[in-house]
């Protein structure tokens, strides 16, 4: 769900964010109880065809979904070794269906609409001390800063390579320092942009 909105006017774009998120939750839950590979494969086809309905270019769909391929393969390998090829295929198809649908929700929904829907859904928890707007902000910041931190990681790796280090876990230390420094700056920026006044 870390992709970005792809503007459009399809029925999926026009559907309310809350409806899409609830549908995603319900479908994901059902998919994880399905065992029949034919039904799961049908689900995959259906999820893929929804991209055509939404007018999302296939390149965008592939680009959005490839990040989870290594982890999915890891899960499948573990299932194959520990259980059976059937279990491996099932887990692969389940993850593929859910990731495709989740990305579709992201691509057809502006982040701000998604955050508003989450905040509205969490509204009743306000009486227990939860601040829904803070949860919404956390979601927005996660989506915003994953590519920024990935870029920082790339720069740190480049700097290490320039000094003759091929690969070292030591790259985590400067990355952590940069990330913490960025977090400090972000806190200041939120203050400067008046976040506290709307959050309190």
């Amino acid at each position: 769900m870390l992709g970005l909105h792809h503007p459009g006017h399809s029925p999926l774009h026009r559907s309310p964010a809350g409806v899409k998120l609830l549908t995603l939750l319900a479908v994901s839950t059902v998919v994880f109880f399905l065992e029949d590979l034919r039904i799961l494969a049908g689900g995959l086809l259906l999820a893929g065809s929804l991209y055509a309905v939404a007018g999302i270019p296939w390149r965008t769909a592939v680009r959005q979904s490839t990040a989870v391929v290594p982890v999915t393969l890891l899960f499948m390998a573990a299932q194959w070794v520990l259980v059976s090829w059937h279990a491996a295929a099932a887990i692969g198809l389940r993850i593929a269906v859910v990731v495709l649908l989740a990305n579709l929700v992201t691509l057809t929904t502006p982040t701000s609409d998604m955050i508003t829907a989450v905040e509205r859904a969490l509204g009743p928890l306000r009486r227990f001390g939860l601040r829904p707007e803070r949860v919404g902000l956390a979601i927005a910041l996660t989506i915003r800063f994953v590519p920024v931190i990935a870029e920082q990681a790339r720069l740190v790796r480049q700097a290490q390579r320039a000094r003759g280090v091929r690969f070292s876990l030591a790259f985590l230390t400067p990355l952590l320092v940069r990330t913490l420094r960025m977090a400090d700056g972000l806190g200041e920026a939120l203050d400067a942009r008046g976040w506290e006044s709307s959050a309190q």
Partner: peptide, 14 residues
């Protein structure tokens, strides 16, 4: 307040 590094000031994805 406009910061030196806009990357820390931009808080939303788009």
């Amino acid at each position: 307040f406009v910061f030196q590094d806009p990357d820390v000031q931009i808080v939303m994805p788009t």
